[in-house]
């Protein structure tokens, strides 16, 4: 993966497209701000993860294939979501195994990178904090931690913001209980997990929780709202943009 490429593709992900467009725009602006041309292919949709994780591999394959065709040029593909990046990087090769376009899928997976990793490793992004002092909590997505092993990038970005204090939650490595179809098929277990996670986040006293993954944010944010807690969920890209722009 080249350092500081001239241009990149942005894979918005279906969740960001429909529910968190501001997170996507923020990620694109951060990259553009570093002098990189950002291309958002118009026809993109979903990486296939929901079906793949539910056992429906044929359906996942077809959707993944349609997604793959949107990113033809040999430039990096940046994804503002750990689990979608993980899907492309680790599971597309498995999903496309034995297919005629297997090689292409592997090539695309090699060009794909999660947003915080890209900002740190490829762009070496320098941030100047323009905001008021604030205390936040961080929830690192399990895909970033266990699959991509880039869990420290979000912390290294935040550490550049000298008015921001990160308050550590108990059991910070524990899953928030989202897991896609898991939350639908096992709502009671998922509900107990997000209860424990929001309790842990709330115990920090922070007013905001940031994460690299909109799946986690939808889960944690929805639970916080249901519990009528004031803590606000925010995607890391939006938070970084907000802190570094007047």
């Amino acid at each position: 993966m080249p350092t500081h490429p001239d241009e990149i593709y942005f894979m918005g992900t279906c969740l960001v497209d429909l529910f968190y467009p501001q997170a996507g725009l923020a990620g694109m602006k951060l990259i553009q701000g570093a002098g990189v041309r950002v291309i958002y292919p118009k026809d993109q949709g979903c990486c296939g993860q929901p079906a793949f994780n539910s056992g429906y591999r044929e359906e996942a394959l077809e959707v993944a294939r349609s997604q793959m065709r949107c990113f033809p040029h040999e430039i990096p593909i940046v994804v503002p979501s750990g689990s979608c990046a993980g899907m492309v990087i680790h599971h597309w090769p498995e999903l496309f195994a034995g297919e005629t376009d297997e090689k292409q899928a592997i090539a695309v997976s090699r060009r794909t990178v999660e947003l915080t990793q890209f900002l740190v490793d490829q762009l070496n992004l320098q941030l100047e904090d323009l905001g008021e002092p604030t205390e936040i909590a961080v929830h690192t997505s399990c895909s970033c931690r266990n699959e991509l092993k880039v869990e420290d990038r979000i912390e290294s970005l935040l550490s550049q913001l000298n008015q921001v204090t990160v308050l550590e939650q108990p059991r910070k490595a524990e899953c928030c209980g989202f897991g896609g179809s898991f939350a639908i098929k096992q709502p009671e277990i998922s509900g107990a997990m997000v209860q424990d996670k929001t309790d842990a986040l709330h115990s920090t006293g922070a007013t905001r929780v940031v994460s690299q993954d909109c799946g986690c944010l939808m889960n944690i944010g929805g639970a916080l709202e249901k519990q009528q807690r004031t803590m606000q969920p925010q995607h890391i890209a939006e938070f970084l943009l907000e802190r570094t722009h007047e």
């Binding site: 497209d17 529910f19 996507g24 118009k42 639908i184 249901k226």
Partner: peptide, 21 residues
């Protein structure tokens, strides 16, 4: 279903990202 027993439901944004590009 079980999702909203523990969470409020997130509404789609007023416009999708693809329209804001």
């Amino acid at each position: 279903g079980g999702w909203s027993r523990y969470r409020t439901v997130t509404k789609p944004a007023p416009r999708p990202l693809s329209e804001l590009i």
